[in-house]
């Protein structure tokens, strides 16, 4: 597990000059994942979304790796095809049998939790030697902040508005990391861009695994969350400290907490700085706020019992 000094010796595989927003969490996630990946060659695939669009605007590519984008819902299937080609070309004798290459697919929460879930589930079940990384910013940011199944309950989104009849999104988020753990693949982890060491370690583990691995990375979006550009990492840290986004891994079925949170802070500390939760602090919404705290508590306790059981 490399420290920061050691990481500076590795090639930064995402070049600047891409056109993601200032303060974007997605590119921080990509850099940390690929720095953690180690020194082996990596082939990258990406679902349609902010990351893909902004990094490959013709004729410029920010990727210093081979890169493929196909469509929105099929990053996992596409990369599974690339990985299959690697095996097929080895079998054909066109690639040396001892050659090692790692395959990774990136997708946002829309492309992963929602439209790409089937493709992801299929690729993981088939056991391709690939890592899938979801950069979770909790909404369809590329199309303009529409709600996804990763959007927290109570959050404002352009398709889950705030008004007299409704206070933002009405439903709880989907627990994708647990869904991926239920695939019984060798490695599943939940990480955050705020905890670089934890994330780069998880990336290193995921890339070292023979077979499929999945990492769900918390990657805030200043534009969609209505926070200042410079607060991307700070708000991600707050998500960890409040227990909204626990950091853990599931290695060969064993659940393990990777970052301990000693004094878990109230959820308000995560919600308050964000414009998308502003309405929750208006008079009359106390119950909603209390419900969000109790949801986090419940999730936290359930997770602790998984750690304890393992």
């Amino acid at each position: 597990m490399a420290n920061l000094k050691e990481l500076t010796h590795r090639e930064d595989r995402l070049e600047g000059g891409h056109r993601l927003c200032a303060g974007c969490g997605a590119s921080i996630a990509v850099r940390q994942v690929l720095l953690g990946a180690g020194l082996e060659p990596v082939v990258v695939g990406c679902a349609t979304g902010c990351l893909e669009v902004s990094t490959t605007i013709y004729p410029y590519s920010a990727w210093k790796t081979p890169f493929i984008h196909n469509a929105f819902e099929n990053a996992a299937a596409t990369v599974s095809g690339v990985e299959a080609a690697f095996k097929g070309l080895k079998a054909a004798g066109k690639i040396p049998a001892d050659k090692r290459v790692k395959f990774v697919a990136f997708g946002g929460d829309g492309g992963t939790y929602d439209i790409g879930l089937q493709s992801l589930s299929g690729a993981m079940e088939r056991g391709h030697d690939m890592v899938y990384v979801c950069y979770d910013n909790g909404a369809y940011m590329n199309t303009g902040i529409q709600r996804s199944s990763a959007t927290p309950k109570g959050a404002w989104a352009t398709t889950a508005q705030v008004g007299a009849a409704q206070q933002g999104k009405q439903q709880r988020r989907k627990d994708l990391t647990a869904i991926m753990a239920a695939h019984n693949i060798p490695y599943v982890a939940q990480a955050s861009i705020s905890h670089w060491k934890d994330l780069t370690n998880k990336a290193e583990k995921a890339f070292a695994v023979q077979g499929p691995a999945f990492i769900n990375v918390f990657a805030p979006c200043p534009r969609g969350w209505r926070i200042p550009y410079n607060k991307t990492v700070e708000i991600a840290k707050s998500a960890v400290q409040t227990g909204f986004w626990p950091l853990f891994e599931v290695e060969d079925g064993v659940w393990r907490q990777t970052v301990r949170v000693v004094n878990r802070k109230p959820i308000e500390e995560f919600l308050k700085p964000q414009g998308r939760f502003k309405h929750l602090f208006a008079p009359g919404n106390e119950a909603l706020l209390a419900e969000m705290q109790s949801d986090v508590d419940h999730q936290w306790d359930a997770l602790q019992s998984r750690f304890n059981c393992s």
Partner: peptide, 16 residues
Amino acid sequence: ESEHSAMSACVGASAA
């Protein structure tokens, strides 16, 4: 797991 993924994987493999 679907024809959509069949052609998606074919695209990935062919590009590879």
